[in-house]
């Protein structure tokens, strides 16, 4: 028996919104420690890795590990039936071919349940090595979203260049060029407004805008985003979920021909 109850059900709705652009289907791996998911987009350029720790749920029971393969478009249809203030419970029997979502209003006067068919998915699991990144940038997630949106008007790719002084995002296209520079700025009133750079050595990497824009669907999950970069390895874009876990995206760089 698997059962996970989340009073803050809106969080689950936001998590799904943050991945359904990139993934049509994925397997939610449920274990005693929590729920995790790892999947690449269909072109194998980006990867989503998320973790929701069991202690972040209000009630969590997982007698044995279960893999819940889901069509995320269908899951999103069901999640749209939950109000933002609903309590959400996910339930599945061991070896079941369906999953049940229960939505309760805070006053418990309305209780809805939706049963969805599960899928058997061939899941490729990639081993992601621990990496000491040359540059780690922490910045407001809304700012990152804005920059990705703005520069995707200019070109298909963004060059992210990071030095001790700051981080620069650049795009070039038929109409011309655009650059956005952010200086390191830790002395702000609110922690979530800070731009903090930890640099071992400068890096400059090129990434496709359309994936970066998809990653920014996670913006409502966290006030800050962390970009981890080293030369010639995938970028990591991480949104930390308070007391719960994380949503991470990996993106392969573009290289000079």
């Amino acid at each position: 028996m698997f059962e996970a109850r989340l009073v803050q059900g809106a969080l689950l709705k936001k998590v799904l919104e943050s991945i359904k652009d990139l993934l049509n289907e994925a397997t939610w791996e449920c274990a005693a420690t929590g729920i995790s998911l790892q999947a690449m987009d269909s072109s194998h350029v980006s990867l989503v890795a998320l973790n929701l720790r069991s202690d972040g749920f209000d009630k969590y029971r997982c007698d044995r590990n279960v893999s819940l393969g889901m069509n995320l478009t269908n899951m999103a249809k069901i999640m749209k039936c939950a109000s933002n203030d609903d309590v959400i419970t996910i339930k599945a029997q061991d070896d079941a071919d369906t999953v049940t979502f229960v939505f309760e209003t805070p006053n418990q006067e309305k209780i809805s349940d939706y049963e969805m068919k599960l899928m058997n998915l061939d899941t490729e699991h990639l081993g992601i090595p621990d990496t000491d990144y040359s540059c780690i940038v922490k910045m407001p997630s809304v700012e990152f979203q804005r920059i990705c949106r703005d520069l995707s008007q200019i070109g298909d790719s963004v060059v992210i260049s990071c030095t001790k002084e700051g981080v620069k995002f650049s795009a070039a296209g038929d109409l011309g060029t655009g650059n956005v520079k952010l200086a390191q700025n830790a002395n702000v009133d609110k922690e979530e407004e800070a731009v903090v750079i930890e640099m071992q050595e400068p890096v400059s990497l090129t990434f496709a805008c359309r994936y970066l824009n998809s990653f920014t669907k996670a913006t409502p999950l966290a006030p800050q985003v962390q970009l981890s970069m080293s030369s010639d390895v995938p970028l990591v874009v991480e949104y930390k979920l308070e007391d719960m876990g994380y949503v991470r995206y990996y993106l392969a760089p573009k290289i000079e021909d």
Partner: peptide, 14 residues
């Protein structure tokens, strides 16, 4: 110009 590489180039299948 640049070309896109894929993730399995970096991460091994487990």
């Amino acid at each position: 110009s640049t070309s896109q590489i894929t993730l399995p180039v970096f991460f091994a299948n487990q």
